[in-house]
Nucleic acid binder design. Structure first.
Lengths: 235, 235
DNA sequence: GTCTATATCGGGATAGAC
DNA sequence: GTCTATCCCGATATAGAC
């Protein structure tokens, strides 16, 4: 009978949600920097200490935002992707959905884009965001799988991560795109996407083998650095 | 007689230098975040107000560091580069000198690497750092000039900026390289440099014209975005 | 113009009472 | 779980010594 643990998390989990909601509202309205924890607490109708009780820091609120976005996007993608065919269409759909989803929070993302240091908890490369990142990479892995292309093994093993980085690059460009309705990003997106897809399709072409080797060699140095850093951290 | 203006700026310009020096020392010793303006003032043997008299903010101290680095590097490069021959050797020398110069401040640079937003004064892409950046790009322009290669016009006009971005990428990788003596960066550097140089040398090869077009097209979208942003800011 | 001393404020974060 | 009080620090301002 006391299944309150799993079934009814209503208790004052709702307070937490209210605080997060208040924070996001204010972030969107006045920007991240200008929004103070005091404002957030007031907007949510709690005391400052209460806000800190639920979220260890202002950054923890951002983490809450990341997690919610991941959940929402997971649902949206799971819905839309199965209806698509081919690598290009799938990638186009995935990225379009992300752009649409993050549109209202573009300014917030800009304020957060400074977190590039893998040591920083909010960095897209940090240990703290690892599960989010890996889930995100897995979308690309599934997408490549479902596209059903024949891709050389050496490239294939890096492809999900590579596409994830392509996505991050596009998002970064988009965040700082000051053209009217981010049409520049749109242009870059369309143009680069077909190049990327063509490169992947061509990658099995025997003549391109040396080129592929050069690319995968570079990749291995970069990823290798990543892995030894992880090994480092584990010690 | 009263040529104090140009000849003897010793007055208490020296104080300014001392404050900057104190700041850098503390940044190196305790990191950027943990160093307070109060500490800096104390280390320099002046009052807090004096520190703010010379530097409007903690960030202004960083700007001072950038400017000094630019001056120092300008001298070092002007000394070393004329003794080199060929694109590869020149690029290798330039980048090696930068790595060596920044080595003691690697941690500081890591703390600053978050300034990626072109709106932020300390960003390498900001208006405030424009002259520094342009001077830096001009090193690459001269270097390409002096290497005396025949390079297609469409690529040549983008090349200095492109090489500058290559440099920034390497520096970024280096800043976060956790391998023993940044040997990973060393590997990436050697390997990528010869690829870059070979690509440039091959760029005039007629068969590669379509490839070059693809690259320059993408570049123009990206740079175009940059320029319209500048035009935007001017309005 | 150069600098000290000090007071004040805003905001992130914490301690401890209830 | 929630609130009040408090601390720390960056930043600003002011009054005044030299």
């Amino acid at each position: 009978m006391s299944a309150t643990k799993e079934i009814a998390p209503k208790k004052s989990d709702e307070t937490r949600a209210r605080i997060l909601e208040a924070a996001l509202t204010l972030f969107r309205k006045h920007g991240f920097e200008k929004t103070t924890m005091r404002n957030i607490a007031r907007e949510a109708g709690v005391a400052l200490g209460a806000a800190y009780y639920y979220f260890d820091s202002k950054d923890a609120l951002v983490m809450g935002f990341y997690e919610r976005a991941q959940d929402d996007l997971s649902a949206l993608l799971g819905e839309a992707l199965p209806k698509t065919k081919g690598l290009q269409e799938k990638l186009h759909t995935l990225l379009s959905i992300k752009f649409d989803y993050f549109q209202p929070n573009r300014e917030l993302l800009r304020a957060l884009s400074g977190h590039i240091d893998p040591e920083h908890p909010l960095s897209p490369f940090s240990e703290e965001t690892r599960t989010i990142r890996e889930k995100d990479v897995s979308f690309f892995a599934n997408l490549v799988e479902d596209a059903g292309l024949r891709i050389p093994h050496d490239l294939r093993m890096h492809l999900p991560r590579l596409l994830w980085m392509y996505q991050m690059g596009l998002l970064l460009f988009w965040i700082y795109d000051r053209s009217p309705r981010q049409v520049q990003t749109k242009r870059l997106f369309e143009k680069s996407l077909s190049i990327v897809v063509n490169l992947i399709k061509l990658s099995g072409f025997p003549l391109l083998r040396p080129v592929r080797k050069i690319v995968t060699n570079l990749l291995e140095i970069i990823v290798g650095a990543d892995e030894s850093a992880v090994a480092d951290a584990a010690r």
